[in-house]
């Protein structure tokens, strides 16, 4: 257990160092692209805590990302709090919201109500924002000034300055995910995923662990929002819409559920590549939707999951398959839940 934790921790640090180096060398016109990769990466890796570890499918994850952003902007602009304090408070508020909305939702065993209630929650937030234009800025959104001084370290531009922070956020999110997966909490979550009633028989309440995971994942999404909103300089209800949430799920499932690499590959494939080729956002959505449907049908463990099982098969070519067939091979890709 601890060797694996050390290895994965080292992996997280290595990714962090590479991204930090990228933050210094990326040409100026690509900084925003890197920021988008970092933010989406952190969102999708955090989302995997629910989808990969617990097989819960929230259809409103982006709502918490948006809530974090809105809370930061409002606390900073309307309440006049300094940006770091506003950020911390915003993450706490998102956690509270998630607990409020999550408690009635997570107990539902097969997860349909969970998907629908999270879905409805995102829509409710949009309604709220659109109907109180005076305070929330309405459907046209809110503009925010940078909130940071003009003197940057290393003579960075403002965008590049936020790249540093987003690298930190991504590393923190990956660190939390690795930590959770290698802890007793992670083991219990794995047990809940495998057999909910069995877990209950062992004396653990599945709802507790689902609730903890939901609040944790939502707070991580809120944390991304805290840095994204001031970086972007603008936040609108579109940010927390259902389409955004499904886009996040799509990246995760296409890349590969249950693995940090899967999440990052998904984001690189569906955010970074289309942006590099200046693809029309609507066309990108067509692409993501089509790919998601195809991958969900043919390779439910995603691109990275498919490659991984191919790799194991190539390494041990002569091993006959188990007599009773690969048990649950599509549901439980090798390495899932690590």
């Amino acid at each position: 257990m601890s060797a694996r934790r050390r290895r994965q921790g080292a992996g997280v640090l290595a990714v962090g160092v590479v991204l930090l180096a990228l933050a210094f060398v990326v040409p100026e016109n690509r900084v925003l692209l890197l920021n988008a990769f970092l933010a989406y990466g952190a969102l999708v890796v955090g989302l995997d805590l629910l989808v990969g570890d617990l097989r819960m499918m929230p259809a409103g994850h982006a709502a918490f990302f948006g809530a974090g952003g809105y809370a930061t902007v409002l606390l900073y602009q309307k309440a006049g709090l300094p940006l770091p304090v506003a950020g911390v408070l915003a993450v706490l508020i998102v956690g509270l919201l998630a607990a409020l909305i999550g408690l009635p939702a997570v107990g539902r065993s097969s997860g349909f109500s969970f998907a629908i209630i999270t879905f409805a929650f995102g829509e409710l937030l949009i309604q709220l924002i659109a109907n109180v234009p005076g305070f929330f800025g309405g459907s046209s959104g809110l503009t925010i000034d940078w909130g940071v001084g003009s003197d940057m370290p290393f003579d960075f531009s403002v965008y590049r300055y936020f790249t540093l922070w987003l690298v930190v956020v991504l590393v923190v999110v990956m660190g939390v995910v690795v930590l959770v997966r290698n802890s007793h909490l992670g083991l219990r979550m794995k047990a809940v995923r495998a057999d909910e009633n069995g877990t209950r028989g062992l004396g653990f309440n599945p709802t507790t662990y689902k609730g903890i995971a939901f609040v944790l994942a939502s707070m991580l999404a809120g944390l991304v929002g805290v840095f994204w909103a001031p970086m972007n300089g603008f936040i609108s209800p579109d940010t927390l819409g259902v389409n955004q949430s499904i886009l996040l799920l799509g990246m995760l499932i296409i890349g590969g559920v249950g693995r940090i690499t899967g999440a990052l590959v998904g984001v690189a494939l569906l955010v970074t590549l289309p942006a590099l080729f200046d693809m029309d956002p609507v066309l990108r959505t067509v692409l993501v939707g089509g790919l998601l449907a195809i991958v969900a049908l043919l390779q439910p463990s995603g691109i990275v999951g498919g490659l991984a099982s191919l790799w194991t098969r190539l390494r041990r070519p002569r091993t006959p398959p188990p007599a009773d067939g690969a048990v649950d091979a599509t549901l439980e890709p090798a390495g899932a839940g690590r």
């Binding site: 939707g289 998601l292 449907a293 969900a296």
Partner: peptide, 30 residues
């Protein structure tokens, strides 16, 4: 073509239908 294969696997069916939703909606939009 699709949903028949996903019977018995809730998340697979959900993911397939979400993909279709995005695809059709964006396609109609375009």
């Amino acid at each position: 073509v699709g949903f028949r294969r996903t019977i018995g696997n809730h998340l697979q069916g959900l993911a397939f239908s979400l993909g279709l939703l995005l695809f059709v909606e964006a396609f109609m939009m375009r």
